[in-house]
Nucleic acid binder design. Structure first.
Lengths: 177, 177
DNA sequence: GGCATATAGTATGGCGCCTAATCATAAGTC
DNA sequence: GACTTATGATTAGGCGCCATACTATATGCC
C-alpha cells in the first residue's frame, strides 16, 4: 500500500543512500503530490465519459452560474487560465454541443458564450455528483482533523514562492493601513 | 493570503449558496491541490533555466544512478510514464546534449541511453539543490508534524480510486498468506 | 525451418496548457 | 478626422503527457 509514485521512490532512495538527513521531508512532499495526483486522475476519469476535462467542466460550471452569458476574457480570468487556452476549450465545448458563441452587438470585438440546453443540463447534473465525490474523499474527517490538515498545508504553502509572495503582500498592506 | 485558486473559490461559492454542508471538505481538498500545484510550479520554474522539465529531470536522475546506461523501456517503468512519452523526452534531452542513444549489440530492438558529460554534470549538480529545495518546503516541521500530516494524507488517499484498489490488493494478499 | 506471439522503440494524433504574434475594434488624444 | 494605444479573440507553435497503431526484432512451439 504505497502511496508514492515510482519516480519519487527512486529519488528518496538516492537521498537515503547519500545520507541526506532530509528524506523525511522529501517523503512528506511527495505524499502531498501523490494525493493531489490521485485526485486529479479520479476527477479526469469521472468526467471523461461526458467528453469533459477538468478545465472544460470549470467553464461549464462558470457559465452555469451566469445565465446571461460571459465573454471568453472573463471566463479566462475566473478559471485562472489564459485567453488562448479558453479559445481552445471553447472550441471543444462548442463542437460537442455544450455551448454556442455569438458576436456581441455593442462591442464587435466581444463574443458572448452561452450554454446550450445540453450544456445547462450537464452543468446541473455534474455539479452535484462532482462536489459530492470530492467531499467523500475526506469522509470520516471531523472538524479537528480538517483544521489540523488545513493548518499544516498552509504552513508548507507559505514556503512556496507563491506563498512567500502572498505573505509579503499581506505584510505590506498591513503597514499601509 | 488566499491559498485557493480562482476556479475553486467559485465552486465553493456555489456550494455554499446551495447550502451544501460539505463545503469544509471541498475547501480542504482544494487546499491540498493548491499546495501541490504551487510546488509543481516552483519546480518547473527552477528547472526551466536548464532547459529541463520535471519529467526530463527524473530521466536524468535515473540515468545518473545507473552509469551503464538504460533502455527507454526501463526508463519508462521507473519514471512511471509510457514508453511513447519517454521517446519524446529523450528526443529533447538528446537534442540538448544531455545524453546519447546507441543501438544494443545483442538485441537489435534495444537502445542504450547514456548520459553525456554535460548530462552527468547537470544530474549531479541539480540533485542536491533540488532535494534541498524540496526539503525546505517543510522547514519548521518536527517529527510530530510530519507524522500528523502524513497520516491525514494517507487517510484521504485511501478514499481515492487508487487508494481503494491498493487497500483491496493488500487485503487479498493478507488472506492468501 | 516456419509461424504465432511477445517485446522494443517510435510515429501519429489528441488534449491541455503556455507564450508570442496577429487582426479587428474601441477609446483617448491631438 | 487621424494617430496611438488598449483591448478582445484568435492563430501558430511548442511542451508534456497520453493512447493507438505501426515496424523491427526476438522467442517459443510445432
Amino acid at each position: 500500500m504505497e502511496i508514492l509514485e515510482q519516480k519519487h521512490l527512486a529519488l528518496i532512495d538516492e537521498a537515503e543512500r547519500r545520507g541526506d538527513g532530509a528524506t523525511a521531508n522529501l517523503r512528506l512532499c511527495f505524499e502531498v503530490i501523490a494525493l493531489a495526483a490521485a485526485i486529479d486522475r479520479d476527477c479526469a476519469a469521472r468526467l471523461a465519459p461526458h467528453n469533459l476535462s477538468e478545465a472544460k467542466f470549470v467553464l461549464l460550471f462558470l457559465l452555469h452560474q451566469l445565465p446571461d452569458g460571459l465573454s471568453p476574457h472573463e471566463l479566462a480570468d475566473r478559471a485562472g487560465v489564459t485567453r488562448a487556452t479558453v479559445t481552445g476549450l471553447l472550441d471543444g465545448l462548442e463542437r460537442d454541443g455544450f455551448l454556442g458563441r455569438q458576436q456581441s452587438k455593442d462591442d464587435r470585438r466581444k463574443v458572448l458564450v452561452r450554454l446550450s440546453p445540453k450544456g445547462k443540463e450537464a452543468a446541473r447534473a455534474l455539479f452535484d455528483t462532482h462536489t459530492r465525490w470530492i467531499a467523500s474523499l475526506f469522509a470520516g474527517f471531523d472538524e479537528s482533523d480538517r483544521q489540523t490538515l488545513s493548518a499544516l498545508i498552509q504552513r508548507a504553502w507559505r514556503n512556496t514562492d507563491g506563498g512567500r509572495k502572498a505573505v509579503r503582500t499581506k505584510a505590506a498592506s498591513e503597514i499601509t493601513q
